[in-house]
Design a protein around this nucleic acid. Sequence first.
DNA 1: CAGGTTTCGTATCGATCAATATGGATAATT
DNA 2: AATTATCCATATTGATCGATACGAAACCTG
Lengths: 185, 185
Amino acid sequence: MHLFWEHGYEATSLAMLREAMGLTPPQIYNAFTDKETLFRKALTRYHETEIGFALDALSAPVPTREAIRRLLLGAAEAYSRPSKPGGCLFVSGALAASPQAQAIADELKAYRKASEAAIAERLAKGRAAGDLPEGFSVEGFAKYIAGVMNGMSIQARDGASVEELRILAQTALAALPAEEQKREA
Amino acid sequence: MHLFWEHGYEATSLAMLREAMGLTPPQIYNAFTDKETLFRKALTRYHETEIGFALDALSAPVPTREAIRRLLLGAAEAYSRPSKPGGCLFVSGALAASPQAQAIADELKAYRKASEAAIAERLAKGRAAGDLPEGFSVEGFAKYIAGVMNGMSIQARDGASVEELRILAQTALAALPAEEQKREA
DNA sequence: CAGGTTTCGTATCGATCAATATGGATAATT
DNA sequence: AATTATCCATATTGATCGATACGAAACCTG
């Protein structure tokens, strides 16, 4: 998973995986069928072990703005762990791919779209609860938040520290309408 | 250039380039030395022909907030031209690379860093001119703006339309301190 | 303890990569 | 017009890709 995370799907060779796992080629193919299946296994593992902060943030019983704040700050921390490759596997895994790997690129795109949809769902819940003003565009802000997270992933890959990403996250938060909207009315 | 933009450095094979340019292998090597040199030529060409909006926005004699607004809206348009690959070549070219292509990945990272530095320079000029409040962090906001643009590049690659990117850009703009700061004082 | 079977590592497969050598066609010169 | 020189497309090179076939070693059974 770390190799795919660091180098992406296509640039990670079986020789690298073999050495990292200490396995012989037949052992790999017995265990994972082929490279594509192995990558998909790495994707689900990544989703289960590294992305918990997002589900936690979006499902926590807190006001909408606080949920988004936790989401962005969680990403700042998750994308810059010193012991892990920088950024997000869903972004780094196959942003650009050869025609043969289009299926992999599409799958990663689906993961990213699902993340955006989850954000939109949380924002919609917030609007229903009155956390957000009238003219608030759920889809527009979801695309903004997802975009900021993708951008943080690239900044992390370029060496941004957790403090720098936290500042970025808090700056991005300023674009959200103020929390007091409900009380002001 | 379009092939590298679409598929990235490593996933673009010489066979694809050969067919696209209608050249035979020796013609390519006579003209461009090798694949890496060809890619670097594509990078400079991209910089000269596709990224003008950024230099224009940052050098225009307008208030700081307007300059950033032009930068983000220019990116929204440049990243989603229907006749071009989505996003920015500096992001898609080699976000994740094999160890052999590390030099290429580093060069693209340098381009991204240079973009961020150009934004920081413009913000510093704005602070000197009084466009921005006292506690304003030039580096922090530059990293935010650069991150948002990188995120827009990924959203564009995932199919976002120019309208959606424009909304994202305007949302991102809301995080900037208000322009009236100077007059209020 | 011997025979048969299963398992597992090495060596290799065809395909494709980036890059180049070679042979034929064209053009220039005598 | 004959010959030489130049150029250029095809065919090929070594290396590496993902994936697999073969041979040896270990283990269980009789």
